[in-house]
């Protein structure tokens, strides 16, 4: 395989500002999503994900402005998710400059949204995000959760992601709610179970604590690896992750040392 394993930082954005500490020195404004996106891009991020966690609907429009400014300055793919409920939401984010749109809770409630968005804009921009946790009552052993992992959906997570792919998801972002925040590594078992069911690209998320965790997610079947806090707090750099991946024999993309402009 020569397609590079994608390393993707995820930024939580609340009312236009990045939340969760970001620990880059020499940043003028550590809360500005555009500056951080640009920084991650120059440090080798292969894609970026903005997760809009804005609770107040009156402030949601700030995300469009953030996306538009990012797209004007950062020339790698940008996925935007969080609170996406309709085809109209897809359209607004894509128009603002997002390349892909992530959908989670709304698709669990109304799966046709996946098909509608894929039909209208193409599967390539529909990322279905699945927050799953271990649940012995489910036949696969994994259950879908919604609302940021706070509610069990009573739905088998693996059945759901296979259905999402059939409906037209171009990519699955699989987040382990058990591993999330533990820094004990990705849930390899869950990734492997998902890999066996779907042939769309799979982004593994949740649990990264050290650079050595990332190749294990790829060995389990992930096409891309996502992390948030370990990158933001400077515990692990994108370069270190790529070094580990390369040493494990996986292709990675090295950013050219020359910076245009």
């Amino acid at each position: 395989m020569s397609l590079a394993v994608r390393v993707i930082p995820c930024l939580d954005v609340d009312a236009g500002r990045v939340v969760k500490g970001i620990n880059f020195r020499d940043l003028r404004d550590a809360g500005d999503p555009v500056e951080l996106a640009s920084r991650y891009s120059s440090r080798g991020a292969d894609e970026l994900i903005f997760l809009d966690i804005t609770a107040s609907s009156s402030q949601r429009d700030t995300m469009f402005e953030v996306v538009s400014r990012t797209a004007a300055e950062v020339f790698i793919p940008l996925t935007v998710g969080g609170g996406v409920r309709s085809v109209a939401d897809f359209e607004l984010l894509l128009r603002a400059g997002a390349d892909k749109v992530g959908v989670n809770t709304a698709a669990v409630g109304r799966p046709e949204l996946i098909a509608e968005a894929a039909q209208r804009f193409g599967s390539q921009c529909v990322v279905v995000s699945v927050d799953a946790r271990r649940a012995p009552a489910m036949s696969s052993g994994f259950e879908v959760t919604t609302h940021g992992g706070r509610r069990g959906a009573g739905m088998d997570a693996l059945t759901w992601l296979a259905h999402a792919a059939e409906l037209g998801a171009g990519e699955i972002l699989l987040n382990s709610m058990d591993a999330d925040g533990t820094e004990n590594g990705f849930d390899a078992e869950m990734i492997t179970a998902a890999r066996e069911l779907v042939s769309v690209p799979l982004i593994a998320s949740g649990g990264a604590g050290a650079a050595a965790d990332f190749p294990l997610a790829v060995a389990a079947g992930a096409d891309a690896v996502l992390a948030a806090s370990v990158f933001h707090f400077g515990q692990v750099s994108i370069d270190e992750v790529k070094q580990e991946l390369a040493e494990a024999g996986y292709p990675v993309r090295r950013v050219p040392s020359t910076h245009g402009h």
Partner: peptide, 28 residues
């Protein structure tokens, strides 16, 4: 795995003008 999504290498002919100076790079 489809879509083919991500950064891949290319094989450009030596006479390529489009890839001049960028034949060793990956593209999205």
């Amino acid at each position: 795995v489809l879509p083919h999504m991500g950064w891949n290498t290319v094989v450009a002919p030596r006479s390529s003008q489009l890839f001049a100076g960028a034949t060793e790079q990956r593209f999205y």
